[in-house]
Design a protein around this nucleic acid. Structure first.
Lengths: 331, 331
DNA sequence: CTGTCACGCTAATGCGCATTACTGCAGGGG
DNA sequence: CCCCTGCAGTAATGCGCATTAGCGTGACAG
């Protein structure tokens, strides 16, 4: 007892499979070409049988699916980073619902060298019409291949070209960081430190670029995350940290030295925490518009699938006033 | 320049498409039928071109997909209930990864009368080989139709028959509640109250049944959630609440009356909070094995797809000691 | 009375793959 | 000499649908 097909419907309605297809898709031209009487008859049979077209066959023939893939380079559901990615998914799901698409979580991608890879033996990307890519760090080679194959995809987060322009919906880290630097300068700060990678993934590079641009001509040093506490030795009065956890670390260290936060020392965090941090602290910094990024990524993806060219959007970050940035009181 | 197909590979390797398919699937029989020389030639071309079979066509031809659907009657990602459902998804994802399936979130299902419906104009269930159903309350008619159509699905949470037995992986609420009642009786409690729906969805009905069985022959009343505070007027020394939020409410009310919790009054919660509750309180109760339920649901679903008959599992709940159940000190 | 057109529909084809049935060939037994 | 068997592969078919080309009929102009 296989499931019902268009042929069955056709037989029951006394028409051809073609007619069923035409009625079903309500194609322009079919509207006029098929009289209401026949159409109703077909529709009635469809309703009675509860028939629905097999989306797979449909896609095979038509090339469309209304399935959007979601590929995440870092694990989304479990673990600590999960909380960071959750808001993106909320936006993605919301938007997918609006545009009437289903979401395919590419969970079957195996780990290779500790990372998920899109392309692997028997990859299943093509199940979806297009794909949203999530992750701090995307594989350049894979991106290049996606571009080369002309597969529609949108990155959540800005990406450099990879053998061609890449569509993305990112956060404007550069502007956000620059603004915060300027705010600090307005409060009298002249010596700055940046703690974090500041390179590698675009999101870090963008932050650091904003920092460099904002502090151009001023005293400004950059330290890796591992040396976070040493930022206190640099003479900086305003420390910008990529990661909340590092901010908390520096805060503690400052406390031990008897430095008053926002008085002797200001700390600014650059984005939402990606690791769980003892963060009852109300850091000055900004918020990444994660849900909105997810939403718009799906929007852009559907446009792409419709055939539009690459789209690149940077969304503004919302500044968080917080209480860790104050007037510089160091002579 | 469409994507590469088996035909292309065949042309490049100087063989037929059939041969490519045979090599690719390494079919028993093909192993012997195709000499290593030819196979290597084909494999080399495949490697050079980076070809991968279109999973869609594959499924169309073979009838399988390795896609598992996830349908949720209540919204999963956003909102408050999201936190409740999250653990299920974690388990589902984990298990899906293990069995090498992708997950299709049926997000395109529209709301009808405020609820999601599986069956609607152009439903897309059949995209997946089978489906995991999530939600406190599933639509009986829809279940019946799924059963009638022979579509493989597993409910997370026990379900009554609907025109046939339904596969599920549920939590054994009945036993858990009964155990808690017995524990309370062991501590000298003789008058009980149950606050919550106690009917309707299976999960509530099961809890209530456990309560009734445990308190058989004793003083035991049942109150709707709206009248939670009135539980204090019933003379009950042990109050069982379906929902943490109600427990918190009763706790407050008890405080106002000067009743000591676990002393004058014991409160037991029946499961994890589904609404965010001011729950720094360490309630005595039990935990629903949510992740495990998700995991096993996927397991069962794959069995079902392989052709097994209905499977029904009840998983034990883990009792939580907590601090709100104490010896009855009321004369 | 023929040519043309619109109408209402259908036959045929192909999407990319898996599968089944078959073919051409070589070698060996009868 | 023919038949059989095994080998190494190929042609053909179909999955369920969308799409294109086309067909039979009646109406109507010329």
């Amino acid at each position: 007892m296989g499931r019902i097909t268009q042929r069955d419907i056709a037989r029951l309605a006394g028409v051809s499979q073609t007619t069923v297809s035409l009625v079903l898709n309500n194609r322009p031209g079919a509207e006029t070409r098929i009289p209401a009487e026949t159409r109703d008859r077909v529709l009635r049979v469809i309703r009675e049988t509860g028939y629905v077209a097999d989306p797979l066959a449909r896609r095979l023939a038509a090339g469309r699916n209304r399935i959007l893939g979601v590929f995440t380079y870092e694990p989304v559901f479990p673990s600590a980073t999960g909380d960071f990615y959750h808001p993106f998914l909320v936006g993605i799901e919301e938007s997918a619902e609006q545009v009437g698409c289903d979401l395919l979580l590419l969970t079957s991608a195996p780990l290779v060298d500790g990372r998920k890879r899109i392309y692997h033996q028997d990859h299943r990307l093509r199940l979806a019409d297009g794909c949203v890519l999530l992750g701090r760090e995307l594989d350049r080679e894979e991106l290049a291949r996606l571009v080369a194959e002309g597969y529609p995809f949108v990155s959540v987060g800005r990406r450099d070209d990879a053998g061609g322009p890449i569509s993305y919906v990112g956060a404007d880290y550069g502007s956000a960081v620059r603004e915060l630097v300027e705010k600090a300068r307005g409060l009298g700060h002249e010596k700055f430190a940046y703690v974090g990678q500041g390179a590698g993934p675009e999101s870090f590079a963008d932050r650091h670029r904003g920092f460099r641009e904002g502090t151009a001509g001023l005293h400004a040093v950059t330290l890796p995350s591992a040396d976070a506490e040493e930022a206190l030795l640099t003479g900086a009065t305003a420390i910008f940290v990529e990661e909340h956890a590092d901010g908390a670390l520096i805060l503690q260290a400052a406390g031990r030295r008897g430095l008053a936060v926002a008085g002797d020392l200001s700390i600014v965090t650059l984005g939402d925490p990606t690791r769980p941090a003892p963060t009852d602290i109300d850091f000055t910094g900004f918020r990444i518009p994660r849900a909105e990024m997810g939403r718009q990524a799906v929007e852009v993806l559907t446009e792409l699938i419709e055939g539009s060219g690459p789209v690149q959007r940077l969304l503004p970050c919302e500044l968080v006033k917080g209480s860790t940035l104050g007037r510089n009181n160091v002579a």
